[in-house]
């Protein structure tokens, strides 16, 4: 899959995205200058911890940031050469759900409890493909079967489904109109491991059939290794390392990325003690001047604390934001 995709057309290009929220009088800098490209057919994993800004990046692409809390948004998000940031709500409505759709973390709350799953899948189809009720229902039945649920259950309500089945329904809704880009925000975090395996295999299979591009948001490096061909590591609202799966997993280069790998118990190696990353992520209301990771970094120097550095190219498509790497060349 990888080799086919590299020559493909640019689908999404995020440039210098910045998002600030206001919270109780202070400004939370949630996203601080994020840029990345996604080509058709590619799958990018956005990895990071709670509060790193992963979901805010996704919501910015969908243009569904909460109005009341969002203080400032800057940057450009080009989807097929159109800047989503400049679009009117009406135009966006035609893109959301038809060309870009999103799968949310918690399938329990993402579904409407008083609509049958059939109606919920058909809703988007009717809106975007202008089908009548009967045809939309036929399409919904087909979609339900695609995600591995029997057509007999089309008139059932969400509470009649288990967690894994609900997430399948959410995926059916998201893929109903054959979007070109699917954004999945922690799609399997609420699920058990054997069910997680089923859902990830389903996403991979559907991507193979339909060529959908994917942005997968997760805190789980194992999920990225399983599903993605590109990785961006997000820390304190910025990308600290980005590259192909092999580049980042075989040669993690940012101290934070290295730290993440050291903190996970290894399934094949016996280590007496894990190597946690000391300390906590910086407070997003008062980010330091220099490197955001400096306070937790074992290699940090005065220079790191004084100057905020850029993403630097290492090899191939591999970029790292670290002064040490920059200096070593």
């Amino acid at each position: 899959m990888k080799n086919e995709t590299t020559n493909n057309e640019l689908l999404l290009s995020v440039q210098d995205l910045e998002v600030d929220y206001s919270s109780g009088g202070s400004t939370v800098c949630a996203v601080n200058g994020v840029s990345f490209d996604l080509h058709q057919g590619e799958s990018l994993g956005l990895v990071g911890e709670t509060g790193a800004g992963k979901t805010t990046i996704a919501k910015s692409i969908m243009q569904i940031l909460p109005d009341h809390a969002t203080k400032r948004v800057a940057g450009e998000i080009f989807f097929k050469n159109q800047d989503l940031m400049q679009m009117k709500e009406k135009e966006l409505q035609n893109i959301r759900g038809s060309q870009i759709s999103m799968v949310f973390q918690d399938p329990m709350t993402a579904l409407n409890p008083v609509m049958t799953v059939g109606e919920q899948i058909a809703e988007g189809i009717r809106h975007h493909q202008h089908l009548d009720k009967a045809h939309a229902k036929q399409a919904a039945i087909k979609m339900l079967e695609t995600v591995g649920i029997s057509r007999d259950r089309i008139d059932e309500y969400p509470h009649q489904f288990s967690g894994g089945m609900k997430q399948r329904v959410v995926i059916a809704i998201a893929l109903a109109c054959n979007p070109e880009l699917l954004i999945a925000d922690e799609p399997t975090t609420a699920l058990d491991v054997t069910i997680q395996a089923q859902v990830l295999d389903l996403i991979k299979e559907l991507r193979r059939q339909k060529g959908t591009s994917l942005i997968l948001i997760t805190h789980d490096l194992g999920v990225v290794a399983d599903t993605c061909d590109k990785v961006a590591v997000v820390y304190a609202g910025e990308i600290v390392e980005i590259g192909s799966l092999e580049e980042v997993f075989d040669h993690p280069s940012h101290p934070y990325t290295k730290g993440l790998f050291g903190a996970i118990p290894d399934m094949y190696k016996d280590v007496a003690r894990l190597s946690p990353i000391d300390g906590l992520p910086p407070n997003p209301t008062e980010l330091p001047e220099g490197c955001y990771f400096a306070d937790r970094c074992p290699h940090a120097t005065e220079e790191c604390r004084a100057r905020h550095c850029q993403l630097e190219h290492i090899t191939g498509t591999h970029y790292v934001r670290c002064l040490k790497t920059e200096q070593e060349g």
Binding site: V193, T194, A197, D201, D220, L221, G222, A225, D250
Partner: peptide, 25 residues
Amino acid sequence: KALLSAILTVDIHHKNERILLKGEI
């Protein structure tokens, strides 16, 4: 066996042969 095969590891060069279970608990 199925449970262990469903573990996702960060080792991208040794992928588990996954035993997919049908249905749910």
